[in-house]
């Protein structure tokens, strides 16, 4: 064991760690405190003697109430959820099949295809949104959830494929060979033996894909136009700011509520998420 003096532990460990924790979490605290602060306190001169920025004595849920009642926020939540789940399912379906084929089957061009899928994984959405907008328009998909449900998989599938391919490679191939001898077809061995074993990998990929699509912004911004069709990130940006006026209380309430679903999913599946995250770069 490495023995260190106490003060060294403090200077080199506890204090930096505390700074990291505070720095990381402060913006979330700030979101919360802003969301429950009455407007009167919110816009107070910063030099005012009564200014107590870090807490409030009159917490209020008014901003949340306004958000739910006076805007289409609940609708956005539902849209985001629906789109995220649908695109995640599509991506998992494609990623499972493709990942299996790339990990297990021998066929001509396997290497080239694997590389191409990996390269598409690295193509950022901001490179493609302008032509895609045109294509979406041509397909008559503009301003429908399908515009997103079909395009989100473009960055989710490569990721899912990559992650699941790595997972499949860790499963001994004798398992499916044995299943095939036991009477299963190739396809049956895949669905009855390999997929059930890969459930942790599938969960990781699914959770990660869900958070990615929940957070997506630019496609949603470009492809959707009517307020009631929007997702949370786009709705908050474009509908909660009227003209030049920022309703910070509502904005922060929206930011908070829009973050909670992913944060919840994340907190239930931290380990799977971390596996997905680290797997997404390891391959």
């Amino acid at each position: 064991m490495v023995i260190e003096k106490r003060w060294k532990t403090w200077v080199f460990f506890y204090i930096p760690l505390a700074v990291f924790v505070v720095g990381t979490l402060f913006p979330f605290y700030w979101m919360l405190i802003t969301a429950i602060r009455p407007d009167a306190e919110l816009y107070r001169s910063w030099r005012a003697a009564t200014n107590t920025p870090f807490w409030t004595l009159q917490p209020t849920l008014e901003h949340f109430r306004d958000l739910m009642a006076k805007t289409t926020f609940p609708r956005w939540l539902w849209n985001t959820f629906f789109i995220a789940v649908a695109s995640t399912l599509i991506s998992l379906f494609c990623g499972l099949l493709a990942g299996y084929a790339l990990a297990r089957l021998r066929f001509p061009m396997a290497g080239t295809l694997g590389t191409s899928i990996f390269v598409t994984y690295l193509v950022p959405p901001t490179l493609l949104f302008i032509p895609l907008a045109d294509i979406i328009r041509n397909f008559q998909l503009g301003n429908t959830p399908w515009a997103l449900i079909l395009t989100y998989p473009t960055f989710l599938i490569p990721f899912c494929t990559w992650l699941l391919m790595g997972y499949f490679k860790t499963i001994p191939k004798e398992l499916e060979e044995c299943a095939r001898i036991d009477g299963a077809t190739r396809f049956g061995a895949m669905t009855r033996i390999i997929f059930p074993i890969a459930v942790p990998g599938i969960l990781s990929a699914g959770i990660f894909a869900f958070t990615l699509s929940w957070n997506e912004f630019i496609y949603a911004l470009v492809f959707l136009s009517s307020p009631e069709r929007k997702t949370v990130p786009v709705g908050v940006v474009s509908e909660l700011i009227r003209g030049d006026i920022y309703f910070w209380g509502q904005l922060m309430a929206g930011a908070l509520l829009g973050s909670i679903p992913v944060a919840l999913v994340y907190s239930f599946f931290v380990e799977y998420y971390v596996t997905g995250l680290t797997g997404s770069v390891k391959g």
Binding site: P172, E174, L175, E177, C178, A179, I193, I197
Partner: peptide, 8 residues
Amino acid sequence: FQNYALYP
């Protein structure tokens, strides 16, 4: 098989 290949 050598590694038994039992379905886990």
